[in-house]
Design a protein around this nucleic acid. Sequence first.
DNA 1: GACACGTGGTC
DNA 2: TGACCAAGTGT
Length: 298
Amino acid sequence: MTLADKAIAWYDDNARDLPWREPGTSAWAVLVSEVMLQQTPVVRVEPAWRGWLTRWPTPAALAQDPPSEAIRMWGRLGYPRRALRLHACATTIVERHGGAVPDDLDRLLALPGIGTYTARAVATFAFGQRHPVVDTNVRRVVSRAVQGLADAGAATTAADLAAMADLLPVEEARAARASIAFMEIGAVVCTARSPKCAVCPLATDCAWRLSGAPAPSGPTRKVQRYAGTDRQVRGLLLEVLRHATGPVPRQRLDMVWTDEVQRARALAGLVDDGLVEPHGDQFVLAGDAPPAGEVQSL
DNA sequence: GACACGTGGTC
DNA sequence: TGACCAAGTGT
């Protein structure tokens, strides 16, 4: 049995019941799940995903609403630029692909907010194609089981994809199944902090285990601080704008953070990113109605 | 390749 | 209790 065979056999019996894995899930729903799952735990994505798909079952439905509604619906999932990009995705899919999520890698990759991982994930999980799909879970599993290293080093896309390609079964459907299986093992068994080697289907082949499960060697990847950063300020500003029913005066935004320089920088960043629109001294989420009386430019 | 980019849970 | 971690992308 190959590593992929063992992973698939394990997955057949142990896969979590995640809603986007149910047969018949649309490519759009899969795409939305993949974007939401970027850097975000499954438990927080599930309810958000259901709400999103209930409101916007198709790209066309989302494209009919302004970006501001997408940003509101995103709630506190984090990285709200993803909501904006998902909206742009929907618009592009309607305008350039007749409302249907494209099924080939290049066209997926061209969509806003869809990078190497997500394009491959959609092509594989929504359309059943055979592609290496490499996320942080897969990188960790391959790093341990194949390379014998405690942790994956910095991402090196080409090499990571090649390493995964070597493990992929030839047959298309099995290849797709192997990809999700390796991801699942990384997510629930071969975890970052305390891998459950006792129940791992790859344990008997795992190069890392076979060499005595050595501790990680190199420098530890640095974790980005959050408290006190622009990101925190952006989050506070956006939180106010999400709940606003109309334009928000600058004075209202001034209350969320005392450091004026940082506050201004964070707000300017949100405007730069297209999440927020300034109307004189008032602000709205992108696409929301401007202050009454203002002449809208075309 | 390094950084910026949210948020909340865990140990 | 603060560091670490969670299906990345864009610059």
